[in-house]
């Protein structure tokens, strides 16, 4: 609680909120697309893990590499 109060929230919120928002949008779109797509480049469950747990780079990697179906 002390740590929570020690942070200057008014200064940090305008900086951090847009980034979190963008990251969330990217993640949600990647997950929606993964559910819809028929086949990915490589196993689907692996991409799910990458999208959900590799911060930021995961969804981007999925869009660049994972969606390429031969």
């Amino acid at each position: 609680m002390e740590l929570f109060n020690s942070i200057n929230w008014a200064a940090i919120v305008p900086i951090i909120v847009p980034i979190i928002l963008i990251q969330l949008i990217l993640l949600i779109i990647a997950v929606i697309d993964l559910c819809r797509i028929e086949k990915t480049n490589g196993p689907k469950w692996l991409w799910a893990i990458i999208i959900l747990f590799v911060n930021l780079v995961g969804p981007i990697l999925y869009f660049v590499i994972g969606r390429r179906n031969q």
Partner: peptide, 21 residues
């Protein structure tokens, strides 16, 4: 359909925002 309109701008935003931070 490829979601390029969403992820390419987002990648550019993240690239740009990372530096000042």
């Amino acid at each position: 359909r490829n979601f390029k309109w969403i992820w390419v701008p987002i990648v550019f935003i993240l690239l740009a925002v990372k530096e000042p931070l």
